[in-house]
Design a protein around this nucleic acid. Structure first.
Lengths: 343, 343
DNA sequence: ATTAGCACTCTCATAGGGAGAGTGCTAATT
DNA sequence: AATTAGCACTCTCCCTATGAGAGTGCTAAT
């Protein structure tokens, strides 16, 4: 069924009122607060139709109405008015970011900003590295039997790993090795995912010539074995959950807490939604995760030097101020992109 | 008032029964479950005295009794029977640790182990570095205008920092610099806290002689400026809170959630209790933090190569199985010490 | 010193009732 | 044909009452 204009107006009013008060919305509230010049009976009739079409639902007969996931979806896709951050808010965000001189700090600041500005949970996925071109590899002997491998990518991301080796470390050989590898890297663009295969193939050739490289082979294999599955996630504002009346019910709180406990699952979920467009909104049961059924997630991708790198987002009850969540997420992802590109 | 033997027995029984059932303990329950060969009236009389002396309290007149913080304290200090982990459990812990090849992994594994084994929140404070002797410093140019500084301490801890520099990096100068610094480090034991002062003093001398070092001065100042306040904390098992009936009450949950939201405060609190003895127990209001008033914290220090490095702990409701919490915390801290010492 | 006995207190579950909010339906109005 | 007034009906919420049950404190007897 196609919604007529009046139904759209009423749906938008219900979404707005329910977001504001967290109470089921009655026909008289719509009539009073939104000046539609309609009687409550007429509004009631339209709400009845909206309910029949799954845009609204009632906790019990003779109570006011609450938007369904479908109702929120229609609102987000067709009804909501874009929100713009005030200049003052933008300045404050920029001001706070000025203090972030390092990568880790920028990530933390971002999740804090997201949670403070939205009163929800702020989520930041660290940049993925696997589609990056490897620009440079350095080996640093730390102590007597450990080597710190530093991989620098074209986007300027730095990826480190400490590997234990048996036996003394010969610094000259280590130098020779890194010079050799870096010369190979300069020749062609090697994706970090292929690092292992390509470089070890190259090394095979030398090893057959120069036996003395043999001892580093195992160590290199370990160095290049970067675990892509390990997605660092920065979360902030869990306590904000307690501000929302929907999470007064223990089982709903339980769901969302177990969602944010398993950071890997949350990260994988967010990644699963990426790539289609910059900002993405997942409302309640639209997610396959049962833990997310009472929540909405607004995510926005950020980039480093123009190349998509990761995503930020906010997680809260489905009853949220979607226009504002979107504008905040988008603005912050833009700023984060700028900052990370400068590093 | 000095507690007589019978009062001690009854107090221990109340603590045990309340831990098991989470229900206020009545005189008849004590009589039935703990076979003291006393009538309920006698037990009631002793409980009355225990209450008068603040070891027990009643939620309301004519209800059973619950231990107070003081009651738990007396139990922990004088009554509880030491618990020993079963060999099977020890083996399982060792087995799980075998997978941890890296520092970061060991930290995460530890917090997970703590939370899984105790059904409470597992806390791990990363090793503090400020009382370590600096053994070695390496500079690695990453990209064109960034330098990765790697500081290795005598305990084998590695501390890294990326610093932006303006202008091109001369690799020969960087080498010269690190050789110079490492020679100075070999001469005397420099505490990491004094790194900045001492080395920059030394550099001053050279700079006056060799003008070309001037450009690195600012950069070094930034490199050595390690922020000690930044205490990395690993937390796991927040969801376990929901298993305990005491946190069904929203405001109690609120308190503990805000405690674990501010990881820095939690870390500082735990650090504040360290040093006196290996294992420390903080019960409810014994902590000055109002957020901790419904919780207990059991912490145990771990060491690296015999030198105290950090602490692990578990955080849960005051109604907890103290003997078991202690044995788990102590055993895991021992294992963690071993693993970190081997790295 | 211990205990049996008992009155007393408080919680908890249940039921009833009245107020209030809000709906759905129908008949009247525009 | 669309809108609305009117009204019966439903459901929640809050208050009160009531009785059972658990547990205590006290006293007198053992």
């Amino acid at each position: 069924m196609e919604l007529n204009e009046r139904m759209k107006t009423i749906l938008a009013a219900v979404v707005h009122s329910y977001f504001t008060t967290a109470e089921p919305v009655s026909s008289s509230i719509i009539a009073q607060k939104y000046h539609l010049n309609l009687s409550t009976a007429t509004i009631r009739h339209e709400m009845y139709l909206l309910e029949k079409n799954d845009y609204l639902w009632q906790p019990h007969t003779s109570s006011g109405r609450i938007p369904t996931d479908k109702g929120y979806r229609f609102y987000v896709d067709n009804l909501m008015v874009k929100n713009y951050l005030r200049e003052k808010e933008k300045r404050e965000i920029i001001q706070i970011y000025k203090k972030s001189k390092e990568f880790e700090e920028a990530m933390k600041t971002t999740s804090q900003l997201l949670s403070k500005l939205t009163d929800n949970i702020g989520v930041v996925l660290a940049p993925v590295i696997y589609n990056n071109i490897v620009k440079e590899i350095q080996f640093v002997a730390v102590g007597n039997n450990r080597i710190l491998t530093v991989i620098v990518t074209d986007a300027g991301l730095v990826c480190q790993k400490i590997v234990n080796v048996s036996g003394e470390i010969d610094k000259d050989r280590l130098n020779y090795l890194s010079n050799f590898i870096n010369s190979k890297l300069a020749e062609k663009d090697i994706d970090i995912t292929n690092l292992n295969n390509i470089l070890l193939d190259e090394l095979e050739k030398i090893i057959s010539l120069q036996e003395r490289f043999n001892y580093v082979y195992n160590f290199l294999e370990e160095c290049f074995n970067i675990r892509y599955s390990e997605n660092k996630v920065y979360l902030d504002g869990r306590i904000n959950l307690m501000k929302h009346p929907e999470f007064k019910e223990t089982d709903k709180l339980n769901y969302i807490l177990s969602l944010i406990e398993e950071e890997n699952i949350l990260a994988a979920t967010i990644r699963g939604y990426l790539g289609f467009r910059k900002t993405k909104i997942i409302i309640g049961k639209e997610s396959k995760l049962k833990e997310m059924q009472n929540c909405s997630l607004v995510t926005s991708e950020y980039s480093i030097k123009g190349k998509s790198a990761g995503a930020i987002g906010i997680l809260g009850p489905t009853r949220m101020d979607y226009p504002r969540m979107i504008s905040i997420t988008e603005y912050i992802s833009d700023k984060l992109s700028e900052i990370l590109s400068e590093f």
